[in-house]
Design a binder for these strands. Sequence first.
DNA 1: TTTATTTATACTCAAATTGAGTATAATTCC
DNA 2: GGAATTATACTCAATTTGAGTATAAATAAA
Lengths: 317, 317
Amino acid sequence: MQHSKPGEPQILIDLSTAIIGTDGGTFQCRLVEDDTETKTGRLPFGPFVPDQHRTMEIGLRQWVGEQVGVGLGHVEQLYTFADRGRQHTTPGAPHVVSVGYLALTNQTGGQTRAWRDIYNFFPWEDWRDGEPSMLADIIYPALDSWLARHAERRASARLAFGRDGLPWGEEYVLERYELLYEAGLVAEAFADGRENAMPTPVVPGEALQLDHRRILATAVGRLRAKLKYRPVIFDLMPQTFTLTQLQHTAETVLGVTLHKQNFRRLVEKSGFLEATGKMSKARGRPAELFKFRHQERSERPLAGLRVSSGRTRSSEA
Amino acid sequence: MQHSKPGEPQILIDLSTAIIGTDGGTFQCRLVEDDTETKTGRLPFGPFVPDQHRTMEIGLRQWVGEQVGVGLGHVEQLYTFADRGRQHTTPGAPHVVSVGYLALTNQTGGQTRAWRDIYNFFPWEDWRDGEPSMLADIIYPALDSWLARHAERRASARLAFGRDGLPWGEEYVLERYELLYEAGLVAEAFADGRENAMPTPVVPGEALQLDHRRILATAVGRLRAKLKYRPVIFDLMPQTFTLTQLQHTAETVLGVTLHKQNFRRLVEKSGFLEATGKMSKARGRPAELFKFRHQERSERPLAGLRVSSGRTRSSEA
DNA sequence: TTTATTTATACTCAAATTGAGTATAATTCC
DNA sequence: GGAATTATACTCAATTTGAGTATAAATAAA
C-alpha cells in the first residue's frame, strides 16, 4: 500500500488553537491580525514539526507560549479538519491539514484587539437575554427556505436548532454553524465557492479566515458539553472567586442564565470548592471567596455542572 | 512561518479504523493479519490521499468498502495520534500520523480470524460477571507499586480505576489503558522501548501493533460514553430485535449487566422503538420484535441509555 | 439615621427520575 | 401436567430536580 508517489503534493499539519477565556461576562477568544484584504481574523496556529516535538500538545504549548504569552489550563484536541474546498489550497501547493485544539486560560486581554467576543461570531448562540430575535426574524425563514429543497436535512435542523418544541441544546454549536454553512447563509460558504451561497451573508455574525469559524464552533460546542460533566470551568476562573462569579462564568460559556439557588446547591454538593474564609467587597452583602480544591475527594468525582437554565437576565426580579 | 524545509521528512496520514460490532454477547472488532514476526494484529487502515477524497470520511468509507466489505453505520473521528516513540518510525522515513476512527456495523464475521473479541485486548474491562479478579490479583498490586514512585499520577489512577470507593466508570477505557502503558505493564510499553517496562507484560491482554491498542481503547471508551446520550446502539442491531437482545448488546458494549425492568422502562419511554407486531420464537415466553424508529419524534431527542448497572449475570435468580 | 436597594445565603416543597423490587403472563422442556 | 424459562406489568421508597419563599448583610439614598 503506497502512501504517496513522488511528485504528489506534500501534507503539512497545522495546529490551530481556540484559546478561550472569560472576562466579566464576555466570552473571549484570542485571535490574530485581520487579513488586510478581507478584514477577517483567524485563530493562532503553528506548524507541527514532528522532529522537534514529541507530541502535538507539547508543540502547541511551546508556540502558544512564544507567540501568545498566556498561561494555559486545560488543553484538548478537538478534531482534525481536512475537507478539500474549505481550506483554499492552491493546486500543486502542499495540502494543509488542521488539527484543532481547545485551550482554556484565565488570563484574557480585556478589550484589546487580540481578544474578541466569541458571540460576535455566533450571535445566535447567546440566549442570556432570551432567545435572540434574529433566529425567528432571519435565520429560521432562510433556513426553512433551504430545507424546503433539502428535506433530508430537516431532522438534523430540528435537533440542532430545537424546533417543533424540541429544546435548544447549548452544545450543538458546530451542528448549527454547519447547517448555516451548508445552506449558504454565512460568508465562508461564499468564500469557499459553494454554488448556493449568497454573496452577502444572510445571517449576522463576523466571519473568520479559512475554516476557523468552524474550528471555533467545535471548540465552543465541546466546552459547553464538557462543562456539564467535567470541572473544566475552574480553568477559566482566577485563584479565588465568589459563587456568583463562578455562575456568571458558566452562564457566559453556556449562553444561558441559571437558577441561582440551584446552582449554589449543585456546586456546593460537588465537593470541588474550598472556602477561603475571606470575603469579597462589592455592592450588596459580601460573598464568601472560594477556591478550587484540586485533589477532588468527591463521591461523584468528575461531576460538572448539570445545569438547567433559569429565567433570562432581563426578566429577573 | 515556514512549515518544513526541503529535506525534512514528509508527513503521511493514515486513517486507522476500529470497526466494531457485536455478535451474541461478544464484542467484536475487525482486525487484519497478524504480523508474522510478533504475532500481533492491527487495525485496518488506509492512507488519506487528499487529491482523491474530498474528506477523510469519504476516503475511509471507500477503502473500508473495498478491503473489509461490511456496511458501516455510524462513523466518527476519534483522535489524531502523532506521539513520537509510539509509532516506530525509522529515522529519515516519513512521519506517519494516524487519524483514528470509530465505525459501527451490524454485520460481524462470527468466529472468523478477522473478527476478534475486544475483551481479549482489555480483559479488565468486562465486568459482566462481576469485577474481574485480575484487577485485585495483578493490576492493582503492580499499579500501586508504580504509583509509589509516581505520586503525581495517583489522582488519575483513583478516578480511572474507581479506587477508594469511587465508582468504576465504564467510559474511562483509554485512561486505564494509558496508565497501564505509562506504568510499563503492557507489552506495547516494552515494544516502544520505555525504560520502566517489563520484557514480559505484567497485565494479561493481547497486544496490537504500533499504538493500535490505544486507538481501540479510545474507540471503546468513546462508544461507551456515547451510548449514554446518543442512540448509536441501534447501529449495532439487526433490522428487528427484542428488548432482551437490545439489552444484551448494551451490556456487551458497556461491560456491565443492567437491571432488566428498568432498562425496558428507559428504552420504551425514549420513543426510539416501534413495535412490529411480530414475535420472536425462543425458549420462554415469546418477546415482541421492535425496530428502530428513525424519525425520532421523542421529546428527549437524542437520549441514549443512561444506564445503571444491575446485578451481575452470575448472581441472577 | 432610617429606609430602600442590592446581593448572598438558607430553607421548602412538589414533581420527576432512579434504583430495586414483586407479581404475573406466556411459552418450551420433560 | 408441572417445572423451568423468559417477558412484561406494576409498585414503592429514595434521590434529584425545578422553582420558589424567607432572611441576612452589606451599601446608597433620603
